[in-house]
Write a protein that binds this DNA or RNA. Structure first.
Lengths: 271, 271
DNA sequence: ACGGTTGTATCGATCATCAATACTCATGCA
DNA sequence: TGCATGAGTATTGATGATCGATACAACCGT
């Protein structure tokens, strides 16, 4: 089950902590089922019929029926406006609001990011470390950017993003290597670096310089510098990204100009 | 139970549709419990102990224990970094990403909003209609703005926001009145209009002008114009807001300048 | 050492949930 | 018109996952 793999990941020790022992008997299968249903939309972001829900969540049609009814009542699913099928519900946004509001890092980061964006005039993001992926939590756009590429909640592979590399640079080699080994090193663009040795070299540079950068590794035409926000024991919590366009900047100018700002902002949030 | 009231609301016919009959027997109580736990953080956005979770979700401590364990495994809760208690988990953001991505309105709105923000230089928001509240889905900040006031997922009362009034103006009087009647007409600032007759007058104006505006009714110093995005049968789906500061603009200048832009953007998204 | 928290673990009874199946209602095709 | 398909809905009794009480452990400040 792919979903199972999904949270076996979570047992891994992303912070070198003891593996979480979860007593099977304390795990509520029926509760989990609801989330499997919601997660089905991650794979197919469109209205799903009952049968598709059942298939996507790997549950019986009967179970899907009841879960869907329940989630409709609660507002976490809505009937598709097209008449057939269901889609994720607005109520989900309330929960993400709670998440953002509960997270002290994000609360502290918001004014700093806004200031930073004002100073830079470029896109500014806060990403959170989450093992082999990073998760964008706050995104302040600048110019025209495409689609949902800039939605918060988006995940990107740690190895191929500036923020991810900046965070890997905070970890010891063993842990960073562990993440690289478990990462699917698939290129996102023709310029994505997928050779572990080269990635390690970039991480080493980031460790030396205090920031990381990528050129067109996640999106063509884009350059990003990023600095890690660390908590105690130098564990990475997140990263500040500043992203610009190669149409506007040379790589060297961009790095020279924005890297210090990213580092400063990240430092203000660290500790 | 306040939570119960929460979704009895959803039985109401926000779109004049037949009341949803929900067979009690199809409602999964144990599934709902998990969401009650997550919803507890809406009331107290801070780490909650097991006992607090139990109290907040109105379930027994044992049930809370099992739900919490389950949600920890799934990533929808995380142990608080402070050591004690749990907080909402990063995985929630994945679901909000799915929501945003599944919603065609939001997908279509993103480039238009970005363009609009570039043109205006002021804050631009997309809100969604949800009965007595509106829900901010996309927020493109401009200047320095405070705190989480500008997070997406935030809800505001329909009656006191420009977008809310623009959407009420799309409804027939009976329905709009129904919403006003069920709204808690509590002032958000000293300048919030809470007199239903006055609100109706403003709605009437909005109907005439094709947009609504509020001055300092939600936040002192702020002026907002908004136009409704409608779907078929003129039902409001959401609204485009443009928000500026009274420090920068006179009310009249702001309206004259930005109302047409909001209307145009809303029209482009409607239908 | 204490009373107060935390979070964790165990247990058998019971009632909510299970899967299977049959139903109604649209829609599409011939 | 009629049949086939896939949509969502409804009903059932058996079963076993989940219930709540309670006990335990680990920590805190006094």
């Amino acid at each position: 089950m792919s979903t199972q793999q999904g949270f076996e990941r979570r047992y891994q020790a992303p912070e070198r902590e003891p593996i979480i022992e979860v007593d099977e008997r304390l795990f509520l299968k029926s509760a989990a089922r609801s989330f499997y249903v919601l997660e089905a939309f991650a794979r197919s972001p469109r209205p799903l019929s009952l049968a598709e829900v059942a298939k996507g969540a790997k549950i019986s049609k009967s179970a899907a029926q009841r879960v869907v009814q329940t989630l409709l009542v609660l507002g976490y699913l809505e009937r598709s406006p097209t008449g057939t099928g269901v889609v994720p519900g607005r109520r989900i946004l309330d929960r993400s609001f709670d998440y953002l509001r509960s997270n002290p890092l994000i609360e502290r980061a918001t004014p700093i990011l806004t200031e930073l964006r004002k100073t830079c005039g470029e896109r500014v993001d806060l990403s959170l470390f989450d093992d082999v992926t990073i998760l964008y939590a706050i995104r302040l756009q600048s110019k025209r950017e495409t689609f949902y590429a800039t939605l918060s909640g988006r995940r990107m592979p740690t190895f191929a993003t500036a923020g991810g590399r900046a965070m890997l640079a905070c970890l010891d080699d063993r842990h960073a290597d562990d993440i690289l080994r478990r990462s699917k090193l698939a290129p996102l663009t023709p310029k994505t670096i997928v050779d572990p040795a080269l990635i390690r070299q970039r991480i080493e540079e980031a460790r030396r310089d205090g920031y990381a950068y990528v050129q067109e590794e996640a999106l063509m035409g884009e350059i990003v510098v990023a600095a890690a926000v660390v908590k105690e024991r130098n564990m990475p919590a997140g990263a500040i990204h500043i992203a610009g366009s190669l149409a506007d900047w040379s790589v060297e100018d961009f790095r020279k100009r924005f890297a210090p700002l990213a580092i400063e902002a990240a430092r203000a949030l660290s500790g």
